[in-house]
C-alpha cells in the first residue's frame, strides 16, 4: 500500500467508517429512536460517498458563471451581448485591428471565441451525483418521518419504544402466537 493510494482513497475509508458507525447503532441498540438516528447517519454517509465520487481535482461547482451563461442565452441577438466584463475588454482590443466598417460583422464571432475559451478553462465537478443525492436526501426525510410516526404510535400503544420490552409484552399477552 503506497502513500498515493492512501491519499487517493482516504475519503472512501472515512465514509465507510461513518457508515459502519450507523450500522452498529442500528443493530446494537434496542431503542427505536436510536435506530432511526443510526439509519440517518448511514444515509448521510451514503450521500457523502456519492458526492466524493463526483469531485474533480481543481474543479469548481457545476454552475456556469453568469457572464458565460448570459452570453450563451443572448448569443443569437448580439446587439445586447455586451454585458460581460471580459467581452468589453476583448471588444476594445479587437477594435484596434478591425476597421469600423467590418466591426459589426465580426462581433458575434469574437464573442463565440471568448466564451468557448472561458468554458474550456473551467473544470466542473460532476453534477449527476448531486442530482441523485438531492432526491435521496428528500426521500430519506420522508421515510424518517414515517418511521418516527410509527414509533410514536408504538409508544402510545405499548408505553415503551425499546424493542426487547415490546417483545416481552407481546409474549406475555399472546403466549400462543409466539411463533407468528
Amino acid at each position: 500500500m503506497t502513500l498515493e493510494q492512501v491519499f487517493g482513497l482516504y475519503n472512501y475509508w472515512v465514509v465507510i467508517c461513518l457508515m459502519m458507525t450507523g450500522f452498529y447503532i442500528v443493530i446494537a441498540r434496542k431503542n427505536m429512536i436510536k435506530t432511526v438516528i443510526g439509519l440517518n447517519i448511514f444515509q448521510t454517509s451514503v450521500v457523502l460517498l456519492y458526492i466524493t465520487m463526483g469531485k474533480v481535482t481543481g474543479g469548481t461547482a457545476p454552475i456556469i458563471p453568469p457572464e458565460i451563461a448570459a452570453q450563451h442565452a443572448e448569443s443569437h441577438g448580439h446587439e445586447d451581448g455586451h454585458t460581460g466584463h471580459d467581452a468589453h475588454v476583448d471588444h476594445a482590443e479587437h477594435a484596434d485591428h478591425v476597421s469600423e466598417a467590418g466591426y459589426e460583422a465580426t462581433d458575434a464571432v469574437v464573442h463565440h471565441g471568448v466564451e468557448a475559451a472561458e468554458a474550456a478553462e473551467l473544470i466542473y465537478s460532476n453534477p449527476l451525483p448531486s442530482v441523485l443525492m438531492l432526491t435521496a436526501i428528500v426521500v430519506g426525510i420522508a421515510t424518517t418521518a414515517l418511521a418516527l410516526a410509527l414509533i410514536v404510535r408504538i409508544g402510545e400503544d405499548y408505553g415503551t419504544v425499546e424493542e426487547d420490552e415490546i417483545q416481552l409484552i407481546n409474549r406475555r399477552e399472546q403466549p400462543n402466537k409466539r411463533a407468528s
Partner: peptide, 21 residues
Amino acid sequence: GACWMLILDAPDVAFTEAAVG
C-alpha cells in the same frame, strides 16, 4: 456533512442537507 459537501463542489446538496438533515 453539509460543510464537507460544500468543499466537494456540491453546494446544492449541501444546502439541502443543512436544511433537511
